[in-house]
Design a protein around this nucleic acid. Structure first.
Lengths: 147, 147
DNA sequence: CAAACAAATGAAAATCATTTTCAGGACCGC
DNA sequence: GCGGTCCTGAAAATGATTTTCATTTGTTTG
């Protein structure tokens, strides 16, 4: 699966005439080795830990490439911070976000998915993407609150 | 309806022990006189037009009060810009956003609404809010594209 | 009604995330 | 290897928002 993503990026790079650089390889490896919804800063820190020479402008630039290449997805949380997560081809999931502890839980719902397309169609929109964020209090924080 | 919102804000102000100031009255009036999804900058310009003395820090501060008071809602668009819209008690609507021209169309869907609550419940979340943004190309931009 | 204190304001500075600039360094085709 | 171009890192620039702080303005009390 990691290999598949690397191939996806290589294909994109080839199509766009991008050069292959050590930095991009490193950032891709580290990005693929995570399973979280990373902020740029977080990824930058991980990268810097093993490769101190890499600057954060490069991390910013590279993450945008990943989005264009189709292997990452950008999400803007309430509060304005941007996070990146793996994009698995054809899979659409949405997020439950705990407003206390910022924990993010992913979910998928085919019915909502279908309704979204119907709504877009009804308004004449050609749908290219969507974001749904349900905000609330997670079980752990609910429990902690009672104490 | 405008009066009702003013009362809502007055109630909130009273509860919080906020003082009543000319600036807040002006900003509330102008905010209520619009029907758009305003950015802070846009509201600030409207305010400044009739009341040049009011600074943008005050507009920022006041909009946050409106959100807390429950009469406005904050939305973060992809790209990071924040917009504020009227929040009508009990009404939940979501947005179709044209990624070409940034036009925003509102919609409501009771079925999705219900499914969202089911999903939250299934994960043990106590739902406090949600944002759903469907991104795509609006009919006008689609048409323009063909030219 | 005046005094007194706290809250609110405006302007400017500070902050934060992100983008751009630019000079040097690294890839790739030849 | 050579040369042009793309890529990179560091720092500066940007843009939105927040904070600071001196001043003004409500409110409360005597």
């Amino acid at each position: 699966m990691i290999l598949e993503k690397k191939r996806l990026f290589d294909a994109y790079a080839a199509k766009q005439g991008l050069r292959s650089t050590r930095q991009r390889d490193v950032i891709l490896d580290i990005f693929l080795s995570t399973h979280e919804h990373l902020s740029v800063e977080e990824l930058y820190l991980k990268v810097k830990a093993s490769h101190p020479g890499i600057g954060q402008a490069t991390v910013y630039r590279t993450l945008k490439l990943f989005v264009d290449a189709g292997l990452a997805r950008e999400m803007t949380l309430p509060g304005g911070q941007t996070r990146y997560e793996h994009q698995l081809a054809g899979e659409h999931h949405d997020h439950l976000i705990c407003t206390r502890c910022n924990r993010i839980v992913e979910f998928e719902d085919a019915t909502i998915e279908r309704l979204q397309h119907e709504i877009a169609q009804r308004h004449g929109f050609r749908l290219t993407g969507h974001k749904m964020q349900l905000c609330g209090i997670c079980p752990a924080c609910s429990a902690a609150e009672i104490q």
